[in-house]
Nucleic acid binder design. Structure first.
Lengths: 252, 252
DNA sequence: CGCGATTTGTGCACGCCTTCACAAGCGCCT
DNA sequence: AGGCGCTTGTGAAGGCGTGCACAAATCGCG
């Protein structure tokens, strides 16, 4: 190891490193940097400049430098960043060196696909348990795992030290499942079911709603269409007929 | 006052709305409001207060009011918002009244699930075409649709007026597919493949990376673990009440 | 008809994030 | 050894988004 001293080096001896409190925006980008770095490492690059890494990650180079500066000084002026060192540092910060155990609840259409998603295993996670309530699905084998009944969640979560749960159930049962996960000691939830979950404040929830993503794109389609329809003038087609008649026209 | 100024185009003469340019953050929340409103409509509510709708959507009520004020004045002071009117207005803004056609490229593990995802159809989108390059998958029937070869993309996209494409291929082929989509006239892309896509500036891309979501959760697990290990850190004080915490949604 | 209760719409201040611009530091070449 | 070019790390400024607090507006009721 090098004799370099950094505040939160993985190998820091003598107690817990002071955990840097990074801006949320930075945290959300670290995984993207990590993926780009892995790609660079495969191509044999040993160092990379902020400009190069920023391009690979699709961000501004100044932003990247500021993000990385929050982790500490891991670059060399005039040279760039050491790829493997930076990989190790980011993986440490993200806690990926622990190969975290994940459980998945809801083995329906989407859950089935997630259970077999290779991207999880290759990026630091082990899907160790599948749950469902449907008796016809319990017992099914998926990707080497047996689907269990959700009543076994608490026991298995404790056995396997599961801290992260993924919800892929229909919307109606998502809250019930979330409560069960929390009761089983899960403190991070990734929710694919539409709707808002209520959880204790010490539990983190991230939501992925596929339809919402499409709706946001749809908005931009609508916007683009209304712009190209008549540049500079009033749009020909776009007229919100849904409005009540007394509000339709502006009475000026 | 029957003649009320229509808020969506303040100061604009002629009565036709130039497209209101909403803050991105607002746009990202509109779909959540819409979902909550649909839920309210099913329960028979005709009006809803900003407080009530905000709770259902998991946001601050002041934020909700400000968001809606960007669309215009669709509430009544002392009463609240008319549910069906607000639904119509948000659907119009998001362009959902056009029941947009969507195509999906990559019928692998994840793509297969997306093709059958009921949430798309029920929220304003029609999946009208599936594509893949694998000859063994071409011709397969999924959910009433036949998987076509990607060479047919350009023709079918034109026939069906497809403006939105979903990429669910392995990372290596995502850029090629994106290029093909752009060439076929698609101007909005939802990308499930890890990595950065480069597209012309008139094309919108949204990315959903499932592993990144887990990695962000992993960071918070790591942080929480290091806090509880520290003596001085605020212990995870049992806060039994479930607050409608701000649930971080994926997105930019 | 007027008053009080209720709820919207918004001005304002604050904090986070982004971006620019540049000084400081490092290696290489002469 | 010294200078030169390259790259990082960061101070400062500007923009965006959030949340508070309150005036304006509307309804119901006596």
């Amino acid at each position: 190891m090098s004799q370099q001293r950094h505040g939160s080096t993985p190998g820091e001896a003598g107690g817990v490193p002071a955990f840097p409190d990074l801006p949320e925006a930075t945290i959300a980008r670290l995984p993207e940097y990590l993926r780009a770095l892995h790609h660079l490492a495969e191509t044999g690059a040993e160092t990379v400049s902020s400009e190069g890494l920023a391009a690979a990650a699709g961000v501004n180079s100044a932003k990247l430098r500021k993000d990385l500066s929050h982790l500490g000084s891991y670059g060399t002026r005039g040279v760039g960043y050491d790829v493997s060192l930076l990989v190790a540092q980011i993986e440490y910060i993200l806690g990926l060196d622990e190969n975290r155990a994940v459980c998945l609840v809801g083995v329906g259409n989407l859950g089935h696909a997630l259970a077999g998603y290779a991207g999880f295993a290759s990026r630091g996670f082990r899907v160790v348990a599948l749950f469902d309530t449907d008796p016809r699905k319990v017992g099914e084998q998926i990707n080497g795992l047996t689907v269990r009944h959700i009543d076994d969640l608490e026991r298995i979560a404790a056995e396997e030290s599961i801290a992260i749960g993924v919800i892929a159930t229909p919307p109606g049962t998502a809250q019930t499942v979330a409560d069960a996960l929390v009761a089983a000691g899960v403190t991070s939830i990734l929710n694919f079911a539409p709707g808002v979950l209520s959880v204790p404040s010490n539990v983190d929830v991230r939501k992925v709603d596929l339809a919402i993503e499409l709706q946001i794109l749809s908005f931009h389609e609508h916007r683009k269409a209304s712009l190209t329809a008549l540049p500079g003038g009033r749009s020909a087609a776009a007229s919100p007929d849904k409005l009540p008649d007394n509000q339709k026209a502006v009475g000026s």
